[in-house]
């Protein structure tokens, strides 16, 4: 299991399109993906869960990935967040 603290840096935060990109990417991996914000832990492979986090710019989340391809998965997901979900701002 790998855990990593990541800051949401894009302007709009985890908005709907960003969330759907995240979910699609997470689903490409076999590992379990969890997002933790404050005390709430949600499934990173499901869009409704991510939307209920309502994570704005500057929010710190913890990614918890567990499974055979965990290293690849956390790397890819972290890149997505740090690249502002590949969206122009």
């Amino acid at each position: 299991m790998i855990e990593k603290k990541i800051k949401i840096i894009n302007k709009l935060g985890l908005h709907a399109r960003a969330a759907s990109k995240f979910v699609n990417l997470a689903n490409r991996f076999k590992s379990k993906v969890r997002i933790i914000k404050n005390d709430d832990e949600i499934d990173g492979k499901s869009i409704l869960g991510i939307l209920t986090l309502a994570a704005t710019q500057g929010t710190e989340i913890i990614l918890r990935v567990e499974g055979e391809d965990e290293e690849k998965a956390i790397q890819a997901l972290e890149n997505l967040i740090n690249n502002k979900f590949q969206e122009p701002e």
């Binding site: 499901s46 869009i47 409704l48 869960g49 939307l51 209920t52 309502a54």
Partner: peptide, 16 residues
């Protein structure tokens, strides 16, 4: 349900 996702359900392929 959390207020934001109340009444909603996600089905792959159909969306929310």
């Amino acid at each position: 349900a959390p207020p934001l996702s109340r009444y909603h359900l996600e089905v792959r392929g159909l969306g929310i």
